[in-house]
């Protein structure tokens, strides 16, 4: 479970990123986190990963009280979270198999377990036949699926996907979304998708939390357009 209670956070230069934010995301929920640039989405993610600490309020993530969390415990919090980046951030010099295995290796997982789990997660994302390929040999959609397998392989309780469809074609967008929904429904994992993609928000009716200027301005199931008019209109 993820719970923010009256959380405020400012950067050292004084920029207020989050103001009195309270939200609760239960285990197994699928949530869209939306909002314009500078709304506070990235800051909220940073607080989730304990990269930054809230100056006011309390943050609880998967049983960890982040305000009191000791530095040496942070890696163990992060092991309960999986992240998927918009630009995939795969390692060009590693094969698909090695990219996924790397996530396990850095938490010092036994080699036997790596050998057992990596193929099954590659199979889950439909890339068993691409295990020996390098990222450059894959399409954008395939690269994002590798990134998803890599986020899932350590069996986190929640997946945070930052613009997971931002760098891929519209046709492949549904593939990734269907995968995330499978992870949520079958894998029973909390999925938080950060996105600007209004088409996506309209197509998939899930809980949508809208942030603007560091505040939650809407929290509802489904998307009926931004509640705050963006500069240059809705995207």
């Amino acid at each position: 479970m993820i719970r923010f209670t009256n959380v405020s956070f400012s950067y050292p230069d004084g920029t207020e990123a989050l103001h009195d934010v309270s939200l609760r995301i239960d285990d197994g929920e699928f949530v869209f986190l939306v909002g314009p640039s500078g709304a506070g989405k990235t800051s909220l993610t940073k607080l989730l990963f304990c990269e930054q600490r809230a100056q006011a309020g309390t943050v609880e993530v998967n049983g960890f009280q982040l305000n009191k969390l000791r530095s040496r415990k942070i890696p163990f919090l992060r092991r309960t979270l999986g992240i998927v980046f918009q630009d995939f951030r795969l390692f060009e010099n590693k094969t698909v198999y090695e990219n996924v295995a790397f996530a396990m290796r850095v938490i010092n997982a036994p080699t036997a377990l790596i050998r057992k789990r990596v193929p099954s997660f590659l199979s889950l994302v439909g890339l068993s036949d691409k295990a020996d390929s390098f990222p450059k040999q894959l399409s954008g959609g395939e690269q994002q699926r590798v990134a998803l397998a890599r986020a899932l392989v350590n069996n986190p309780a929640a997946i945070i996907a930052d613009e997971p469809t931002g760098s891929i074609d519209n046709e492949l967008r549904d593939d990734i979304m269907n995968l995330l929904i499978r992870v949520n429904k079958i894998g029973k994992k909390t999925v938080i998708v950060i996105t600007h993609d209004t088409d996506l928000l309209r197509r998939y009716s899930f809980r949508t939390i809208e942030l603007c200027n560091g505040r939650i301005i809407s929290d509802q199931v489904g998307f009926d357009g931004y509640h705050q008019v963006l500069d240059g209109g809705e995207d």
Partner: peptide, 8 residues
């Protein structure tokens, strides 16, 4: 990436 994965 190692940090995000939970490497110590």
């Amino acid at each position: 990436f190692m940090r995000y994965c939970g490497a110590t």
